[in-house]
Design a protein around this nucleic acid. Structure first.
Lengths: 233, 233
DNA sequence: GTGATGAATAAGTCTGACTTTTGATCGAGT
DNA sequence: ACTCGATCAAAAGTCAGACTTATTCATCAC
């Protein structure tokens, strides 16, 4: 998606990463670099580079004389966008989607409150444009257009918060919204209440009403959580 | 600290990572693999592995015929614990500490609320033990002992929330608390009010009072933010 | 000025040999 | 039979060198 298999080691990762995060190799199991290199038909150099990347994500741990051991799930760098993408593509997407949505419901209201104070006029304008775009695509099964503006809206909020850590969650939110739209069924048009809330958040941020922006955003996220409860086991 | 130079490429990263995150190589500047390999007196294979790791952190971008280009700060994987450690060791530690503390103040109250519902008896006991440990080390300049229990306390809260994304912020919080103690001056003993709050949070979680746990934790984090305002420019 | 051609460059890949660490095995001694 | 220690072997780690490929830049024809 964002970084398509650039180089041989990237192609290896595209297969090995999802396999590990999906649990095909249970924690504690060991892989041998040479075997993997043969299996993927690449040289050991390429395989080693792929292992290094997996290691930096804390997905595996390479030890001499033993091999490449898969680390327990609890140690993975689950904030790595690449890892998030792999996991969202796997079997436990529902569970993953819920974890991320809970994170959203903690972060986004706080971000909205900060945005009300720090948003530039340009960001306010962009926010309003996004909200209008959502309204325009909220009827007639235009999910693609709606999603586009929805993602942009939340990106702007997080960026406008002025907090670097919040801003960098833009990619995560984008993955969540995209995954939700593409996989968990959204037959009908988006919830009209949610659309209205986005418009109101844009207004609250523009007028600098931090409390209102925070509360409205909270309503959006609890709505998203509730929607997840309905659509997922 | 956690992963000390395991292998030659690790040693290279220990130097190159901090240098990049500190801004020694401004965004857009290009490094040549061969030159770096000579500079660090390692083979190209080792250097390439190090570059792959930096690339997976989105710190750099390797392109044919041009070299290894440093990416703009806004694209870095700032949730990677390794990156956080490098940045906290660098010049903009104050700014970094503030960003992370704002993140804490968004996440930890929510985590505490969830913990009140999901914490196991063992976790409740551990929480109480940590709070008592903080009390025991809150006087007499026993900052090391206090820090130890403080870190453990917040780790348990985040883990007990039952949310994977929250739980994985334990390392981040640990880095923040450690950095705060070791660098920003804490001449005197910890704020007695904060100590009391921790004890009360442990109690609220134990009794399953989510609202109270959330509010008390919020007080802890706003206290931390305020402390930062006082001690940092 | 524009577009095609070619040369230079740095990353990418592969191979093979060698080193180092470390878990496992086996044997000596009690 | 059990412990301790020496030995062995397996796998990662490292290095050097040759080759491939993509991409930029400069040159040149139109």
């Amino acid at each position: 998606m964002s970084t398509p298999g650039r180089g041989l080691h990237g192609h290896v990762l595209d297969t090995l990463g999802p396999a590990i995060t999906a649990g095909d190799y249970p924690p504690g199991s060991v892989l041998r670099t040479d075997e993997l290199a043969q299996h993927f038909e690449v040289s050991r150099s390429v395989m080693r580079e792929a292992v290094r990347v997996l290691e930096s994500m804390h997905l595996v741990e390479s030890r001499r004389r033993v091999g490449v051991r898969v680390r327990p799930k609890a140690e993975w760098n689950v904030y790595d966008p690449q890892v998030i993408r792999w996991r969202l593509a796997g079997a436990d997407r529902p569970h993953q989607l819920r974890s991320l949505t809970v994170l959203r419901s903690a972060v986004e209201p706080a971000a909205a409150a900060l945005a009300a104070h720090h948003a530039t006029p340009e960001q306010c304008a962009e926010l309003t444009a996004c909200a209008l775009g959502m309204v325009a695509n909220s009827r007639g099964h235009q999910l693609a257009g709606y999603l586009f503006h929805d993602v942009a809206f939340h990106r702007v909020i997080l960026a406008a918060s002025g907090n670097e850590m919040f801003a960098r969650l833009g990619d995560v939110v984008a993955e969540v919204l995209t995954g939700r739209t593409h996989h968990d069924v959204m037959f009908e048009d988006p919830d009209p209440a949610a659309v209205t809330l986005h418009v109101q958040v844009a207004e609250a941020v523009r007028t600098g009403d931090a409390n209102r922006a925070e509360q409205l955003t909270r309503e959006i996220t609890v709505g998203a959580l509730h929607e997840l409860d309905v659509l997922a086991p």
